[in-house]
Design a binder for these strands. Sequence first.
DNA 1: GGATGGTTTCCCATTCATCGGGAAACAGTC
DNA 2: GACTGTTTCCCGATGAATGGGAAACCATCC
Lengths: 252, 252
Amino acid sequence: MANSPSGDSAIERLVRILETFSTDRTVQTAAEIGRRAGLPSSTAHRIVDDLVEAGLLERDEHHRVRLGMRLWELALRGSRALRLRQAALPFMERVQARLREHTQLAVLEQDEALFLERLSSPTSGANITRVAGRLPLHASSSGLVLLAYADADVVERVFAKPLQAVSPETITDAAVLRRALADVRRRGHVVAPGSIERVSTGVAVPVRDERGHVIAALSVVLPRDSGAEAAAIEELTAASAGITRTLGRRRE
Amino acid sequence: MANSPSGDSAIERLVRILETFSTDRTVQTAAEIGRRAGLPSSTAHRIVDDLVEAGLLERDEHHRVRLGMRLWELALRGSRALRLRQAALPFMERVQARLREHTQLAVLEQDEALFLERLSSPTSGANITRVAGRLPLHASSSGLVLLAYADADVVERVFAKPLQAVSPETITDAAVLRRALADVRRRGHVVAPGSIERVSTGVAVPVRDERGHVIAALSVVLPRDSGAEAAAIEELTAASAGITRTLGRRRE
DNA sequence: GGATGGTTTCCCATTCATCGGGAAACAGTC
DNA sequence: GACTGTTTCCCGATGAATGGGAAACCATCC
């Protein structure tokens, strides 16, 4: 942009604006967006107007603004996320039907676990993960799986920073984490009690594409001492294989 | 932009670029994007680079480019589409489990029916709708429902243009369409045989938000003469009510 | 091997769209 | 009605984005 002392491109700016939205902040005024994105009020207004014009944002009855369906549509058409989600959903449903616990699909994105889909259990409690939400790689069963099969540079970056504790039982020691990752690779699954919440255990397995690359993690959250770990591993492994098979078949 | 004879804003341009992607065109070269979006090659390359930098696009092994997970994430956080989809999914699953036919959720977006979710039937045939796909309002059962409860200006715009036939049985006569819409409002559902495919019948009902506004259409696609219409209407109506109830409960 | 069609990268002078300060109109709210 | 926050408008200066062109880079095919 001309005359932008902030020194960022138009696109970075757009991303910053979109980032001001979140699950618990779905509507805001143009001024709020400006403040959060570090933009002068008049600039923020102009850009927001443009975005509304283009359909990426929508106005509600109070002239406030929220993410538009058109953005959703543009982001999904032909996205990897959609294809993977479509392939995975039927199998996730089966897992959910059998185990009746939170069932989740996550991918590695910018050194974090990004959750593409979740089927919630009506019985079981808190929802720690959310669709389009993120968790650190070392602090969730899905993350551990993704990290275990991740490229070397990702692993390096994760170990370069201190391992933040999410719960009292999060792995924060690098050596312990390395052993855990080796374990995942050896066993092909992970059982992580209390890594996020003390009362629950995450069980996760890798999901591979048609060429054998790990592209996602499939997981369930069990109550801490349900004793259902073995059954969960079995269900998840079967589902994972099914997803891979589906991905192999071109065009659903 | 400085020096842009095309006379369009940076955002329109971005939208045009994103629009070059589709379900059957998920990866392309920067040059292809430029051509499709009507941009000079050097400009296209620069913008694509920026988008990759920002994570909105991703490169594959051949330096070609596709929609990025980050875009997906940004588009979903707090979007209306996500919330609605989340609320609807369990009910859609139930419908699908009972009827074993394609089950779909669509919203009105820019005078067309935009499909937010679909659960496919393993038994039943072709997939006419796709997640993030669109259909004309007058040529699908979902569309008819959405149109029946749409704002006057939408209706006006639809009737302003000639009604394109999608299949031999698509409603193309304005008077017939008006009667059909009145029917939908009176009955609270629609049964549309052959509007898209000769061999199938669409059955759709409106989905209302907590305040009673119609915000979506829920539909199933039945084989033409299955005789399951009545059962479908009943299932869909129950599901629709369930979705409304779920939406009423704040924060899932 | 080398010729070919396409893609990508780099360079650079021009230009006009973007930026943002400020002030006034416009809500909502207490 | 006074107040606080939001939105809309205006406008001059600035420099970032533009796009033409040429060269480097790849595949692929003959």
